[in-house]
Simulated assay, not measured.
Amino acid sequence: MQKLQTFQCRSHDFDELRISLERWDQSYRQLNGGAFYGGLNYIAIDDLEVFDIRWGTVINYRGLTPKGTVGFGLPVSISGETRYLGRPFTINELLIQHSGSEGDLIGSQNFKLWVLTVSEQRLLNRLAHLSGKEPSQILAKKSKVYLTDKMATILRAKFYQILHRSFSSDINEFAATLAVRKMGEELLDLVANACCREDFSKPTLRLSRQRQLVRKVEEYILNYPDKTLRTSDICQYMGVSERSLRDAFAHCTGINLSSYLRALRLNQVRAELKILAPHVLIRDVAFDWGFTHMGQFSADYKRLFGETPSRTCGSVKLKSFAVIPV
C-alpha cells in the first residue's frame, strides 16, 4: 500500500513555490501587487494529488499537470479580477485542465485555490461508471463547470477534510493513510459528478483568437527584448488594429497593454538577475530588456516586486522558503 506523502511550503519567492511542485511543468509571473508571499499544503496518495495554493499578489500561472493526469481547481478566496484561459471565473466554478493541455490562470491578490489531480484513465473509468456515457465526450472541450452553492460548499468541505486529516497529528500514519484514501475516493466522486453536469462553459472562437494574439505579442516582445516598441509597431507587425490589440489584452488578462508588457519584461529581468547574480550588472540586464532610464526602471521594479533589483540579487544566496515534509 502506497504511503501518504505530505509537505508544506511557505515562501517569499513565487519561483520557489513553483519549484516545490516538482511534478508540474509550470511557470509563474507576477503581474501586480508588491512583495510576494505564498504557500501550499500538499498531499499525494496513489494517483491522487490534493493541495491548496495561495498567494497575496497577482500571479499568472501557466503550465501542464503531471503527465497523464487531469487537474481540477476550486477557488476558495478571490479579491479581484481572475482569468482562466482568458475568461473571468467566480468562486463557484470548477476549473478543468486536461492532460497535455496548458493551463493559463491569472489569480487575483489574496487568491487561494484547492487543486486535485488524478490519472486520466481513473477519471474516465469513474465518469463511465457514474454516467453510463462515453466518458471522453463528457469532458470534451470543458474548461470549467458551474456549481450550485450547495455543490461548491460540499466540495470545499471535502477538500478541507482531506488536508486537515493529512496534517493531523492525532492518528498514526497507517490510520491516516486509510482515512485519506477513503476521503480521496469521495472527493473524486464529487468532482466526477460535477463534470457530468451540462452547465459548463466552452471557449468562444473570438476569445481563442484573442488569446492567440496575446501569445504572439508576448513572443514578439521576448524575441526583441531590447527594442523599444510602440503600440503602432506591434499592430503593424501583427496586422491588427490598435483597438483589437487593446481589447485582446483587456479581455484575456484584465490588464492594460502597456502595464502587461512592462510586467512581462520586468519578470524577465528578475529571472536573469536570479540566475546570473552576482556576475552581472543590474543596468546591463535592464538595458538588454529595453529599460534605458535606470531611475524609472528601479521604481517600476520595486512597485511590481516589492523590492529593489539589488535586493533581488542579494537574496539569491538566502533561503527564503521552506519545504517541510510532514
Rank of each mutant, 00 (worst) to 15 (best):
M1V: 13
Q2V: 11
Q5A: 03
F7M: 12
Q8C: 06
Q8L: 09
R10S: 10
S11I: 13
S11Q: 13
L17F: 01
L17Y: 00
L17S: 01
L17E: 06
R18D: 15
S20P: 14
R23Y: 03
Q26N: 13
R29W: 07
L31P: 08
N32C: 06
A35F: 10
G39N: 05
G39Q: 04
N41G: 07
D47Y: 01
F51M: 06
R54A: 10
N60A: 08
L64Q: 09
P66T: 04
K67F: 07
K67G: 03
G68M: 09
F72T: 09
V76M: 06
V76H: 05
I78K: 00
G80H: 01
Y84F: 13
L85F: 08
G86D: 10
P88L: 05
T90R: 03
L94C: 06
L95Y: 03
D104V: 10
I106P: 15
S108C: 12
Q109A: 12
F111E: 09
K112N: 03
L113R: 00
S119W: 06
Q121V: 10
L127C: 03
A128Y: 05
K133H: 07
E134C: 04
S136V: 12
Q137M: 14
I138V: 15
K141T: 12
K142C: 12
S143T: 15
K144D: 12
V145K: 02
V145R: 02
Y146M: 08
L147K: 00
L147A: 13
T148E: 15
T153Y: 04
K158Y: 07
F159H: 01
Q161Y: 04
R165V: 13
F167R: 01
T177M: 05
K182M: 12
K182D: 15
G184R: 02
L187V: 14
L190I: 11
C195D: 07
R197S: 15
L205T: 10
R206A: 12
R206V: 12
S208F: 00
R209M: 08
R209V: 05
L213A: 02
L213I: 04
V214C: 04
E218H: 05
E219R: 02
E219S: 09
N223S: 13
Y224L: 12
K227Y: 10
T228V: 09
T231M: 15
C235I: 12
C235T: 14
C235S: 14
Y237M: 12
E242T: 11
L245A: 02
R246F: 02
D247G: 04
F249L: 04
C252K: 00
T253I: 06
G254P: 05
S258V: 13
Y260H: 07
L264K: 04
L264T: 10
L266Y: 05
R270H: 09
E272L: 14
E272D: 14
L273H: 02
L273G: 13
L276C: 09
I282E: 05
R283M: 10
A286R: 06
D288S: 13
D288Q: 15
W289S: 00
W289T: 00
T292I: 10
M294Y: 08
M294C: 04
M294A: 03
F297S: 07
D300H: 09
R303T: 12
L304A: 07
G306K: 03
E307C: 11
G314C: 13
S315R: 09
A322N: 11
A322M: 14
P325C: 07
V326Q: 02
